[in-house]
């Protein structure tokens, strides 16, 4: 019905970003979607102190064979979802490979080290170029800008989930994933999240690189 075919088994997805960007929620929504189809889902998260402006990362894995551990081995991500472009580049170094698909929010978050004068944030074009070089296919999405149009930067994560589903990188139809949102997002915030999701779906066509 709402299920399509997975691109790999186990399918390994890294969700990365900076504390506060909604990384954990994004990975749990993917997990909840996949557990509905009876996949063995494992998620590994790093949070706690790392919430405070540091790099955060979740590993989402699903397989029809058996439960895998909560950590993806180096170089074995099938998809990287990046809520922050520079952190996405770092994730690709560790978990990327020539076949990896990347969905990345192009909006930078300036690290405190840049404000302290200990380095410059890379030029946006250089970052895009590096991400393209390190991926088989990349979607460069202005997710924060889209989210701000919707009314709050916090739905940038769901914009990227729209692109993930639209690009066929997890085995569920857009209708199926909308149902996951309805079941897991509080009523008060549902409308914004549904709009964010559909904007992400549209971006599959307009922002493929």
């Amino acid at each position: 019905m709402n299920e399509t075919t997975a691109i790999a088994d186990p399918c390994n997805i890294v969700v990365s970003g900076v504390g506060g960007q909604g990384n954990v929620l994004a990975s749990r929504l993917i997990g909840r979607a996949m557990v509905k189809f009876d996949y063995h889902v494992s998620i590994g998260e790093t949070y706690g102190a790392s919430q405070r402006g540091g790099t955060v990362m979740s590993h989402v894995r699903f397989s029809s064979k058996h439960a895998y551990g909560p950590l993806i081995p180096l170089g074995r991500a099938n998809t990287v979802i990046g809520l922050e472009p520079m952190e996405t580049l770092r994730i690709l170094r560790d978990y990327g490979n020539p076949d990896v698909s990347v969905i990345v929010n192009t909006r930078p978050i300036t690290p405190v080290s840049v404000n302290l004068g200990e380095g410059d944030y890379p030029e946006p074009d250089d970052l895009r170029d590096a991400i393209r070089q390190l991926s088989k296919k990349a979607w460069l999405i202005p997710a924060t800008e889209i989210a701000l149009e919707i009314g709050t930067p916090v739905v940038a994560n769901v914009v990227l989930l729209g692109t993930l589903v639209g690009a066929g990188l997890i085995p569920i139809t857009p209708d199926g994933f909308e149902q996951v949102l309805r079941n897991n997002v509080p009523e008060r915030r549902l409308e914004r999240n549904l709009v964010a999701f559909s904007r992400g779906l549209e971006a599959v066509q307009t922002h493929a690189a």
Partner: peptide, 14 residues
């Protein structure tokens, strides 16, 4: 690419 195009990110109060 990471050596050339990234800077470190430390913890900071929200």
């Amino acid at each position: 690419l990471v050596d050339e195009r990234t800077v470190s990110r430390g913890l900071v109060w929200c």
